[in-house]
Design a protein around this nucleic acid. Structure first.
Lengths: 357, 357
DNA sequence: CTGAAAGCGCTTACAG
DNA sequence: CTGAAAGCGCTTACAG
């Protein structure tokens, strides 16, 4: 597999190498300097013999005419979290970003930051001229941004982050996710809904609660909330407490707002026994895994890949100097109606007399 | 952040640019051509002003003296599977590879292959001189290798694959994983062990069974096996069948050979009720997630990151022409002793009379 | 033993 | 309007 160069194309057609360069130029003004027929022959030959420009040569050139920014090589910084909860959604965002970059004939370089010393990798890559911009996922905070700024390269943060400064970022619209769950159940006729949240203060959780509460107020929906550690979903003792809470709550629907909780909870409900959806409607929440989809629960699906893809588009705009507003852009989630929700029975769950209707 | 070049260093010290190049050369023979003191001054200055060689210039040069292979840019091909089971272990291997590459000042380019047309990306990257070698993870088969060969670049397959041809590859030693589970339980005094396997014919599963059976035969251990779909772990009906099977099996220990099954099974056992480890010992199996570790079950842990790291080492050897034997290299797993295994009670589980002892 | 010079493949300013 | 030439930063063969 020897490399095909512009010189070889030129030689084949009896033209100068610069004629070939002109024909292949990205710059439309420069292309016009060539007779249309000559250009056509050059492009045809280039295509036929499989010419692909040598990236290193192009990059080296940019050092000379630095004013025209390029968008060939993007780095994705994965700031490791203490848990590995984030791996799946981050991987999904990365996949989406890679897909979008491939369309632009650009590549994605993966860099994992585990310790502060790993930032040296970032600075080294920058100095080596390897990167045109950064996508950043994981445990992003002001300190990370402080490391990123001196690279002089544009960046976009993907997913939840802890920055207080205004930074270009892209995320799922968790507020809307929460609102849609409430609105879907309200439309079916539910008036009292139970919510099971993670006890950990994830950002996505608090955004979702924001949406849930605003939609509940707007729709006259009563809510009951319970915050549980993820382990509770599988612990028998916690499971019993959870069922007791649910039965006395008078709720006709349950939203399990932790990723992949629905299957375990569904199992728990069946043992109560509470039939889904006859006795109680169940809405699942899934972040970058597909079990809820496989079981076709009614569910909130988060388009993490779309966040990655849109992140690339945003970064591209910034590189080429488009006037991009700082702050967070949001991608709407999807509410998929499966079998696990329906209108509530007129005869509600066993309900304590103290609960007003 | 303007770039620091060899010329600038040379200018500062009143030397020629080639003297600087000699001092910084990787080639020890070339370094010796310079007086030690001159070399020291050059290195000191380079360090002080943060010189980092421009990667594109280095790469372009290699086009000229192509005989000396480089190992700067490695591509990781993620061949998407139909399910997303593989995402977590693949991400773990990728993280391990990135860490090892960073030590070598090399970078990892992520490419996702979802459709056959995506192989164009691979060929384009190759032609563009962007890659020195490939790491390949996911759904790798002979067809993938056939796409890879014409790139002319060395490759190493990480993790399970379906190639019939002999290819350089690195994997977890699943056979040993199975053997260790049996040997651990045998050492504690268990003589009859139950195994819960995925119904899907994963390669890791069959390797593990191989190890389990050879160790069982060697240690005089009786085994009972059940193959279940992953959903069985959470379905109440299947759960009851599973408990019945377990109780009548006469087993004093259970190995749940599906990733992250242990928690659900443990819950199921508690409802039976079967206390762990008093009534039955439980060994968990975990692939690139940490729930079993968090709960400190006795468990088999798979060092996926180590597979990635060793994969880089192997690829590096191949690039530099070391005589590497084809076929699979294996990384031993770890058996971690947690709270969930102990010696069996002398009074065994309820056991049907038809089972010989 | 030392240092000026060639050239990797490309892009673009500049001379004809 | 066209094409020869300069040069990005580096590595290495080659002339002094």
């Amino acid at each position: 597999l020897s490399r095909v160069t512009q010189r070889q194309i030129a030689h084949q057609l009896g033209l100068s190498q610069s004629a070939v360069a002109f024909a292949l130029s990205d710059n439309p003004a420069r292309r016009k300097q060539l007779p249309a027929e000559t250009r056509r022959r050059i492009l045809e030959t280039a295509e036929r013999i499989g010419y692909v420009p040598h990236r290193a040569a192009q990059r080296l050139n940019q050092e000379r005419f630095g004013h025209s920014r390029s968008f060939d090589q993007v780095g994705i910084l994965y700031l490791a979290t203490t848990s590995d909860y984030m791996d799946l959604p981050c991987h999904a965002m990365m996949s989406g970003a890679e897909h979008e970059l491939a369309n632009l004939h650009a590549t994605l370089t993966f860099i994992r930051i585990t310790a502060p010393a790993d930032w040296r990798k970032v600075h080294r890559l920058t100095q080596a001229g390897m990167v045109d911009g950064w996508l950043v996922v994981g445990a992003v905070d002001d300190q990370a941004v402080a490391q990123l700024r001196p690279t002089g390269l544009p960046f976009v943060i993907l997913g939840d982050h802890h920055c207080t400064a205004l930074v270009p970022s892209l995320n799922i619209d968790h507020v809307t996710a929460g609102r849609w769950v409430v609105e879907h159940l309200a439309r079916l006729g539910h008036r009292r809904i139970a919510f099971l949240y993670s006890a950990l203060p994830f950002l996505y959780r608090d955004r979702m609660i924001e949406g849930i509460q605003s939609a509940s107020v707007a729709g006259g929906i009563q809510t009951v909330e319970k915050y549980v550690p993820s382990s509770a979903v599988t612990s028998p003792a916690e499971g019993r407490l959870l069922l007791d809470w649910l039965k006395t709550s008078g709720a006709t629907a349950l939203f399990t707002a932790g990723s992949s909780w629905a299957t375990s909870i569904w199992r728990l409900l069946q043992e109560a026994p509470l039939r889904v959806p006859e006795d109680i409607s169940l809405v699942a929440y899934e972040c970058a895994s597909t079990t809820a989809a496989a079981q076709n629960f009614t569910r909130v699906e988060l388009p993490m890949a779309e966040v990655g893809s849109q992140g690339v588009v945003l970064l591209h705009k910034i590189v080429f100097g488009a006037d991009v507003a700082l702050g967070e852009k949001n991608i709407p989630p999807t509410l998929v109606e499966g079998w696990s929700t329906r209108a509530p029975q007129t005869q509600a769950l066993e309900r304590p007399s103290c609960v007003p209707d």
